[in-house]
């Protein structure tokens, strides 16, 4: 069982983000980190390969400036190798452009299954994965909260409005996993050390045969403006006390909810 996991490397989410005033693209200064949302996919893949008794996990990422620190985190968790697509031409890519690049990168390796998160922390379009599936001609199951391989087929519990559906699909396929799907492991010291020597192939847009088809220049979207949203009026904030409960009850009465 060979599994490709798409892992996005993003600016540290604990740092307040900002927009470039000229391009309105997210400012991506500083070291990138592995998007937390993707650690669930990496863990899921490692467990599925284990259960299958063989095969390997390949991480696929598109990121500026040959950034690999996020990929290394995934390698330290146990993935075997990485594929990075990095090219100045890719700045300002929209979801479809990203999907074209990732689909082409995935095609350079052998896989039975592609795993992604349901949405990234910084972009959260949630459309990239299924666009990849369409471009690769694969079936897809989004919003998986449980994933198994049974008799060579994918078996997924997929979230729905009302609960969940049990969905099956032949392989190869693409699945997007939610944060509840598995508990990601922390990389061990040994894992971190061995990650340093695991292979990461770097590809350019030209290597993938996509010159002139992807990146900001070919993205169909334009930013028109950015403005501050209407701020909410600051409210009353009080410390807990018996009087506080009385005041809260008074507030609820005034809203006529009691």
């Amino acid at each position: 069982m060979n599994i490709c996991v798409c892992v996005k490397q993003i600016p540290d989410p604990t740092v307040t983000p900002s927009l470039d005033p000229n391009t309105s693209n997210l400012v991506r200064a500083g070291k990138l980190v592995l998007d937390d949302s993707d650690t669930f996919g990496v863990e899921m893949a490692l467990q599925l390969v284990d259960a299958a008794g063989g095969g390997e996990v390949t991480l696929v990422s598109m990121a500026p400036n040959s950034e690999v620190s996020g990929i290394r985190t995934g390698l330290a968790m146990g993935a075997a190798k990485g594929i990075l697509v990095s090219d100045p031409e890719l700045a300002g890519s929209d979801a479809l452009s990203t999907a074209k690049v990732l689909a082409a990168a995935i095609k350079t390796t052998e896989f039975d299954l592609v795993i992604t998160a349901t949405e990234s922390t910084d972009g959260y379009t949630g459309t990239t994965p299924v666009q990849i599936a369409e471009l690769l001609g694969l079936p897809s199951v989004s919003f998986a909260k449980k994933v198994e391989i049974v008799d060579g087929a994918l078996k997924v519990e997929r979230q729905t409005e009302a609960g969940f559906d049990e969905v099956t699909s032949p392989l190869p396929a693409l699945v997007t996993v939610t944060a509840g799907v598995v508990e990601p492991r922390y990389p061990s010291f040994k894992g971190i050390m061995s990650a340093k020597s695991k292979p990461v192939t770097t590809l350019t847009v030209a290597d993938l045969g996509l010159s002139g088809q992807v990146g900001g220049a070919n993205s169909g979207q334009q930013v028109v403006s950015v403005r501050k949203a209407e701020a909410r009026q600051a409210g009353t904030i009080i410390e807990d006390s018996d009087d506080a409960i009385g005041q809260l009850v008074g507030y609820l009465e005034q809203l006529k909810v009691i």
Binding site: A95, Y124, T125, T127, V130, F143, S219
Partner: peptide, 23 residues
């Protein structure tokens, strides 16, 4: 922005090779 809405939009966008604006 529902499970099936998002999937359908993503499939259509890739089929037509036109972008999609989300959220």
């Amino acid at each position: 922005t529902s499970y099936d809405g998002r999937d359908s939009a993503a499939r259509l966008s890739a089929r037509l090779s036109v972008g999609v604006i989300t959220n």
